[in-house]
Amino acid sequence: MTLEARGISFHYGRKRVLNDVSFTLADGRFHALLGPNGAGKSTLFGLLTRLLALQQGDILLGGVSLKRQPATAMHQIGVVFQQNALDLDLTVQQNLMYHAGLHGMSLKESRLRCARELERFELSERAGTPVRQLNGGHRRRVEIARALLHQPSILLLDEPSVGLDVPSRETLNRHVRQLCDDSGLTVLWATHLIEEVRPDDQILILHQGRLLADSDGHSLCRDKGTSSLAETFRTLTGEEVS
C-alpha cells in the first residue's frame, strides 16, 4: 500500500516545524527518513499517526484520507515510537493482547495473532515475562510485533534503534528489512544514523522542516556528484551526519 503526504505544514505556536512536505512511500519498499535531531521527524510521525492534528495538507493511505476516514486509514498503519510505549508492568503477552483488543479483535483471534507474532519474533518463550525484565533489544522486538499484530500494510518506525547497542541496532534493522522483503510491507524508518541507511533504500532527507531529497541512494549520490550518502547528506544540509 502507498502512503502519500501532500503539502504538509505544521507549526507549534509561531514556530514552523514542517514546511510544505510532500512525498510518496512506494508499496512494499524500505524507506529511510534521514534527518538530524530537530529536523521535524517526530512531528511528521505525529501527523502520520494522527497523534497530531493536520493543520495543512493531507495524508492518503492507499487513496484513503487520514483526515476524512481516520478509522480506515489507521487500520493500515503499524507504529513503533521513539520512546518505549509498552506497559512495563504487564507481560509481553498482555501488552500484545491489549493492543489487539484496541483494534477490536476477539479474544480467540487475539491469542492466535499474538502466538504467530511471538513466534515470528522469537519471543514465544518470553510471552509471560513482564516487559520490565526484558533488555532493550527484546523490548523493541515486542514493539514491532505489537505494531504488526493487526496486519497493517505500512510500518512506521520513529528512530527505533535509539538506546540500543550497535549489534542490537544492526539485528533490528536487518529484521525489519527482512519483513519488508518477505511480506511486502511498506516501511518508513526514521533515523539520524547514516549507518542504518543503504544506497538501495528510498531516502527522504528532512532538514529544518523541509524535505530536501526524495530518491534512492544511488540517484542521490549521482545527482549531487558525491561518493557516499554521508557526503550527500553533508552537501544537502551543511551538517555532519552521525
Partner: peptide
C-alpha cells in the same frame, strides 16, 4: 499513544 492509535473514535 497506544490507546490513541486505535482506529476506534
Amino acid at each position: 499513544r497506544v490507546l490513541l492509535m486505535s482506529p476506534l473514535p
